[in-house]
Each structure stands twice: as structure tokens, then as C-alpha cells.
């Protein structure tokens, strides 16, 4: 079947600077893809190209088989967008905003009124229905913004950092909405600064930096690719931790911070060797933990390989999901 979103070799330049460098990405219906990358990685540029706000310099975009270059209005009719900042008419109230955008998307007046009521309830905005948007709290605005994007359901939903600055309750509500949309078969593309959010919501995570795709896979896949396991040791003092770092110096990617030492390892049984080395130096261990790397570590491993605590050339086992992570 046709993918809901399909980008091939998408390229966008601003003068000398290449914001997107041959980015390819496919999102089937019912899938949530999280786009991760540091500030300036090209996330918003990608979204602006996809949503017809920017014209790419190369490559192709297809949204349900429609090309934004030749059929922009068909693409627009099928994509719901929520940008980084709430895009609402501040001079009118939430209900009027919902009715306005509902009608604009083809609902009749009565239909739009009814739908507005439903959305206000669904997004817990009933009490503020008649308060001008200018007076609403940040959380309420973001909820209303998403409600406006969903007032007429469309097969593709694009969310650019939707929970930045949201309180935990609003964030949870928003996450539930995104899951419900995906369950209905909506293809969701979501950019976020919060790795936990990507971990929670995304079926697939795409890491981009400097306009290039560095990795594309499920959260588990990426964690495996980055470094297998991470052994975290807590020693009794910072001096001991430094001594441990020296003792383990031959192992790749070892790092120490305060009383803690992190040792990347390929297999759980490697822990024995580490403990043996420390025992030989008479170092006492207060706590030990062997875990998969966190998504934070995955993120750093791909975007700033030199600073990633748990990464090294040898511990990386790039599967087919990793594209040139080591630069």
C-alpha cells in the first residue's frame, strides 16, 4: 500500500547552509514516528517542507500519494499540523476558533458547532469555552491548539514539539490523544526535545543532525545499536571512582563522574571481569546496576559521539537501522 508519508532524498538549502541533506523517511498509517535531533538539526525545516510551507531544493515528498509541489491543496487537506507555538486567533474564544477552523476544513455551520462542543469536552476546555484565547493559560492554549488541529480528523498528523512548556497533566492528555489518533490509523510525525516522550510514544525513532538522518529504528533497536549494555558502578568516594577509572582504563568508553563509573559492555557476563579488576585494586563497590543505555545516551551517541559516555567504536554494532552513526 501507499505509505502515508514518504520522503526520498529531501534536500533544502538556505544559501550556503544545507538544512536537509538527502533525508529519506517513510511513515505508514497508524505509526508514530519520533523525530529527534538537537536544535538546528533540521527538524522544523523538514516539517515545513512536508506541510507545504517551504519548497525543497531536491528530492521528493509524497503524502498519501500527493506531491506538495504539484498538489499542495490536496496535501494540506490531508495533514493536520500543530506547530511549536499555539496558532490561534487570540481575539476570539476557543469555541469560535474551533468553529472557524472546522468550517474552513469543510464542516457545515451546525456540524462545526457540534464538533467544537465535542472537542472542548474531549480536551477539558469546557470551562474556558467563552474566554478569549488571549486570557488562557499556556497549557490550555496548547490543548486548544491540538484540538483545532484535530477538529476535522485527517489521515496524517504532524506535531512539532507539541509538549514544550506543558504541565504534566496536559502532557499526559496530549500523549493519550496521540495514541488514540495512531490507533485510529493516523500516521503521526512528532518532533520533540524530550527523549522520554519519544520513548513513550514513538513506534520508530529517527535521529537527525545537521540535516542528515543518523539512525532510524525502534527505541529498543537504537539502544542495542548504540552499545549493548551499560554497567553503572557507584564507589564509596570520588577518589575511588578515579582509581577505578584508571584500573578499567583499557576498556573502551569508560567514564567517571563523582562517585560513579559507567562501563559499556557487550554481554551481561562481562560484569565478572570488571568486578575482578576492581577487586584486584582493593576498591569497594557500594552499588552496581546493569542496564540498557537510556535514550539520552542513544541521542548523544548519535549526535555527539565524542561525548557519549557509553559509546565507542568497538561497542557499536551497527545493524541495518544505523546509517553512518560514527562520523
Amino acid at each position: 500500500m501507499t505509505e502515508a508519508i514518504s520522503l526520498s532524498d529531501l534536500t533544502k538549502r538556505f544559501g550556503e547552509q544545507t538544512a536537509l541533506d538527502r533525508v529519506s523517511l517513510r511513515i505508514p498509517a497508524g505509526t508514530v514516528v519520533g523525530l529527534l535531533g538537537p536544535n538546528g538539526a533540521g527538524k522544523t525545516t523538514l516539517i515545513n517542507c512536508l506541510t507545504t510551507l517551504l519548497q525543497p531544493d531536491g528530492g521528493t515528498i509524497e503524502v498519501l500519494g500527493h506531491d506538495p509541489a504539484t498538489d499542495p491543496s490536496l496535501v494540506r487537506a490531508n495533514i493536520a499540523v500543530t506547530g511549536q507555538f499555539a496558532a490561534l486567533d487570540e481575539q476570539i474564544n476557543p469555541r469560535e476558533n474551533l468553529v472557524f477552523f472546522g468550517r474552513l476544513l469543510g464542516l457545515g455551520k451546525g456540524e462545526a458547532q457540534q464538533r467544537a462542543g465535542e472537542m472542548l469536552e474531549r480536551f477539558e476546555l469546557g470551562e474556558a469555552a467563552y474566554t478569549p484565547v488571549g486570557y488562557l493559560s499556556g497549557g490550555m492554549r496548547r490543548r486548544l491548539d491540538l484540538a483545532v488541529s484535530l477538529v476535522v480528523p485527517r489521515p496524517v498528523l504532524v506535531l512539532d514539539e507539541p509538549t514544550t512548556g506543558l504541565d504534566p497533566r496536559s502532557r499526559k492528555l496530549l500523549w493519550e490523544m496521540v495514541r488514540a489518533e495512531a490507533a485510529r490509523g493516523v500516521a503521526v510525525l512528532l518532533t520533540t526535545q524530550y527523549l522520554e516522550e519519544a520513548d513513550q510514544l514513538a513506534d520508530r525513532i529517527v535521529v537527525i543532525d545537521k540535516g542528515r538522518v543518523l539512525a532510524d529504528g525502534s527505541s529498543d533497536q537504537l539502544k542495542r545499536d548504540v552499545g549493548g549494555l551499560m554497567c553503572r558502578l557507584t564507589l564509596t568516594s570520588a577518589a575511588d571512582a578515579r582509581a577505578a577509572l584508571l584500573a578499567l582504563g583499557e576498556l573502551p568508553g569508560v567514564s567517571a563522574e563523582g562517585e560513579k563509573v559507567a562501563v559499556p559492555m557487550a554481554r551481561p557476563e562481562d560484569v565478572g571481569g570488571v568486578l575482578g579488576l576492581l577487586e584486584g585494586k582493593g576498591l569497594r563497590i557500594a552499588d552496581i546496576e546493569v542496564t540498557k543505555p537510556t535514550l539520552d545516551e542513544v541521542f548523544f551517541a548519535f549526535t555527539e559521539p565524542s561525548q557519549a559516555p557509553g559509546t565507542s567504536e568497538t561497542s557499536q554494532a551497527p545493524g541495518n537501522s544505523v546509517k553512518g552513526a560514527a562520523r
Binding site: A29, P153, V186
Partner: peptide, 16 residues
């Protein structure tokens, strides 16, 4: 994962 987009809508939702 392979649901057709837009058809399995919330009951009260108007058609896309």
C-alpha cells in the same frame, strides 16, 4: 499498523 487512514474514525467525527 496497516489500518486504512481516516476510515476507523471516532464515531461522532465527521468524514475527512
Amino acid at each position: 499498523m496497516s489500518t486504512t487512514p481516516g476510515v476507523a474514525a471516532v464515531p461522532a467525527a465527521p468524514a475527512p
